[in-house]
Amino acid sequence: MTKPAPKPATALDYGRRIERVVAHIAAHLDEPLDLARLAGVACFSPYHFHRIYRALMGETAADTLRRLRLTRAAGELVRDGADVATVARRAGYGSVEAFTRVFRQAHGSPPAAYREHGRRGPSPQSRNETESPMPDVSIRDLDPVRVAAIAHRGPYMELGGVFSRLHAWAAGRNLLGPQTRAFGIGYDDPSAVPPEDLRSEACLSVGQEVQGDGEVFIRDIPGGRHAVLVHKGPYTELERSYRWLYREWLPTSGFTPADRPPVEQYLNDPRTLPPEEWLTEIRIPLA
């Protein structure tokens, strides 16, 4: 009688199958969502695929497709200057009104305003920078963090899709839990480097025993003294906080940044909260 495969090996195999599905969705954003086809990509029965995907990813395949399409739409609005109706159709919406409603929920502002704000960049006269003070910056000694990471080259807005693949990888290895922390590392200044050349990493905290596999590698985010600012609001507005930190706070702080990139820790789950409630800890390493 054949013995069943050990549970860890089964979970690992499930995770790899779902990774393939996430990559397939990202590569076919303009095609209709065909659950039977996705089940075939994962080599799961169509009767069970949907439940397995949701159990591992925390969202349905349709949710993943919708989220990745809206992320692409945000980039098209800012980088390409496409009109809202064209972007809405490409994102799979039959009307601008429906697209606007969903886009606002995802990104915190309607498409036209988002595009205009992105073209201008953070305004020196924005409310957060002048009319009201930015939140306090704290100086903290942080512990190093061991993470599993996937490298990305391209617009920072595309990092959400990379996190989806990393989430599937971690779920298949039973590495996700209440203590798991998510980090993003951006190596380049988006105002100085073309979007297609931006370098970044999506990271999830892991234990010392975890090993990399395929595109996932293991690295340590160094600890030490950091300037820390908590940004509240959509990720699209993070650049405003960075601008304030580097233009206003750092030159008068008496500190010098270390020769390492800033790190973001995402303190809550953007899939379960509106954009105005998202919390991001910006960590600037200090010499």
Rank of each mutant, 00 (worst) to 15 (best):
T2R: 10
K3Y: 08
P4C: 06
P4S: 09
K7T: 14
K7G: 04
A11N: 10
R17A: 13
E19G: 08
E19C: 15
V22Q: 02
I25H: 04
A26S: 05
E31N: 07
L33R: 01
A39Y: 00
G40D: 12
P46W: 04
P46S: 05
Y47L: 15
H48D: 11
I52N: 12
Y53I: 08
M57W: 10
E59I: 07
D63G: 09
T64G: 00
R67Q: 05
L68W: 00
L68A: 06
A73T: 03
R79N: 05
D80F: 02
V84F: 07
R89N: 07
A91F: 02
A91Y: 06
G92C: 02
S95P: 11
R104I: 08
R104P: 10
Q105I: 13
Q105A: 15
Q105K: 15
A106W: 10
H107F: 11
S109C: 12
P110W: 10
P110T: 09
A112T: 12
A113L: 12
A113Y: 01
A113I: 09
R115W: 00
E116L: 13
R119W: 08
R120K: 13
P122E: 11
R127N: 10
T130H: 03
E131N: 05
E131R: 10
S132T: 13
D136P: 03
S138A: 15
I139L: 12
L142D: 04
P144W: 06
V145A: 07
V145R: 14
V145N: 07
A148E: 01
A149V: 11
G154H: 07
Y156T: 02
M157Y: 11
M157I: 14
V162C: 13
V162W: 12
F163K: 14
S164A: 15
R165S: 13
R165P: 05
L166N: 07
H167G: 10
A168Q: 15
L176N: 07
G177S: 09
Q179K: 10
R181C: 04
G186D: 01
G186Q: 09
D188T: 00
P190T: 01
A192W: 00
D197Y: 02
D197R: 10
S200F: 06
E201T: 02
A202E: 05
C203N: 03
L204A: 08
G207R: 01
E209Y: 07
Q211M: 12
Q211T: 14
G212P: 06
G212Y: 06
G214Q: 11
R219Q: 14
D220C: 09
G224C: 03
A227Q: 00
A227D: 01
A227G: 02
K232E: 14
G233R: 01
G233Q: 07
Y235K: 00
E237S: 12
E239C: 00
E239G: 11
W244H: 05
W244F: 09
L245N: 04
Y246M: 13
P251G: 09
T252W: 03
P257Q: 10
A258C: 08
D259C: 00
R260A: 04
R260D: 11
P262S: 13
V263K: 08
E264K: 04
L267Q: 03
L267N: 08
N268K: 00
D269S: 06
R271D: 09
P274H: 11
E276A: 11
E277W: 02
E281K: 07
R283E: 06
R283W: 12
L286S: 02
A287I: 04
